[in-house]
Amino acid sequence: MRAMLLAAGLGTRLRPLTDRVSKSMIPVINKPSLFYSLNLLRKSKINEAVINLYHQGSQIKDYVKGGEKFNMQVLYSEEDSLMGTAGGLKKMESYFKDTFLVLSADGITDFNIHQAVQFHKQKVALATVVLKKTKEKFRYGVALRNKEEKITQFVEKPSWGDALSDEINAGIYIFEPDIFSYIPAGEPYDLGHQVLPSLVKRGEAVYGYLMDDYWIDMGNLADYMKAQRDILKGKTGIEISGREIEKGIWMGENTQISKSASLKPPVVIGNNCCIKEKVKIGKYTTLGDRVTIKKEARLEKCILWDDVLIEEKAYLDNCILTHFARIPPKLSITGGVVTHRIPS
């Protein structure tokens, strides 16, 4: 079985994090979000995939290369302009000769692919949409199913009057190659806004598979932070890299922590970090590689990417700091995003 990972989007709702970094390369517990989608495929023994690229696509190619680190064969489909989820898929029509999987490159989930594929085949479906129950249904496509689990209505990001169900489109699909006959060639086209509503209206064999597994879209800053905390809480089934030096505290290689520093789990610290005297790091904090935190600085519920410097007595609460950010001495920030070096 082959898969397509959708990674061409601009990630506008995650700005400023995505100004210079592909959404699929944003660190989640010190690994690119793309890692978790590829690892899900690997664990499911799907070893051939294509990734579509547009915004900062070279970052993805540099990281994944040919897929060797995942024991996979990975190809790329580069788009000169955004083609939409369906238009990008249509571009790779010749790659898919049998039942195939399509999913976002940056979602975090541990759903059972094999069970979903088995459901798809039992239903003799043209398309299966993986669904998830949620209270936040107005942000996603909503599906209404009948007793046979066939989708009878599909509304992308509905208004209050159109939200007929609490089962939303998780952005994961299983298709038969016949799906390509419903997608025009050479133009932008969207699965959620155009293809699926049209198929449902025509009465085609479109079914909804309701997952009971962990899933989060990471479509905005709040969900990005929630995904990290859910992993740290053990809600996702995702293993955390590093050596667990105490319960709930993971540390990478060549990291130095002062004996007078205080760490409140769960916390993840990357490689080659330096944590100085009397530093206090609160729960749900992750530090990337080569992070330096100087004397008496305090962090609560923060996400620090690589090569970050926190000067003495700085205080950060519920903040995100991207690569090479610097916080000067004694500065306090609550609920901020820092993407550069703040001058003293």
Rank of each mutant, 00 (worst) to 15 (best):
M1I: 05
G9A: 11
L10A: 12
T12G: 09
T12A: 13
R13E: 14
R13H: 12
L14I: 11
L14H: 07
L14K: 10
R15H: 12
R15Y: 11
S22M: 01
M25L: 12
P27M: 02
V28H: 06
V28N: 07
L34Y: 03
F35D: 01
Y36S: 07
L38Y: 02
L40K: 06
N47Y: 09
N52W: 01
I60T: 04
G66A: 06
E68R: 09
K69E: 04
F70I: 05
N71E: 14
V74L: 00
V74G: 04
Y76F: 10
S77K: 12
D80N: 14
T85N: 00
G88P: 01
S94L: 08
F96N: 03
K97S: 13
D98R: 00
F100W: 03
L103S: 08
S104Q: 08
A105H: 04
T109K: 07
T109F: 12
D110I: 07
D110R: 04
F111G: 03
A116L: 02
V117C: 04
Q118E: 15
F119Q: 07
F119R: 00
K121I: 08
Q122L: 06
T128C: 02
T128R: 06
V129Q: 03
V129S: 02
V129R: 01
K135T: 06
K135V: 05
F138E: 14
F138T: 10
R139W: 13
R139T: 08
Y140R: 11
G141V: 12
K147F: 13
K150F: 08
I151L: 06
Q153S: 15
K157N: 13
P158S: 10
S159F: 12
A163M: 05
S165N: 09
E167V: 11
I172R: 05
E176W: 03
I183E: 00
A185D: 08
L191W: 00
L199R: 07
G203M: 03
G208S: 02
L221W: 07
R229M: 10
L232R: 01
K235M: 11
T236A: 06
G237W: 04
R243C: 13
M251D: 05
M251P: 00
S262P: 00
P265Y: 02
I269V: 15
N272A: 08
C273T: 07
C274K: 14
C274N: 14
I275P: 01
I275G: 03
K283D: 04
T285R: 09
V291P: 03
T292Y: 00
I293D: 02
K294A: 10
A297K: 06
E300Y: 12
C302D: 10
W305L: 11
D307W: 08
I310H: 02
A314R: 00
L321D: 02
L321H: 04
P328L: 09
P328I: 09
L331V: 15
S332L: 09
G335F: 05
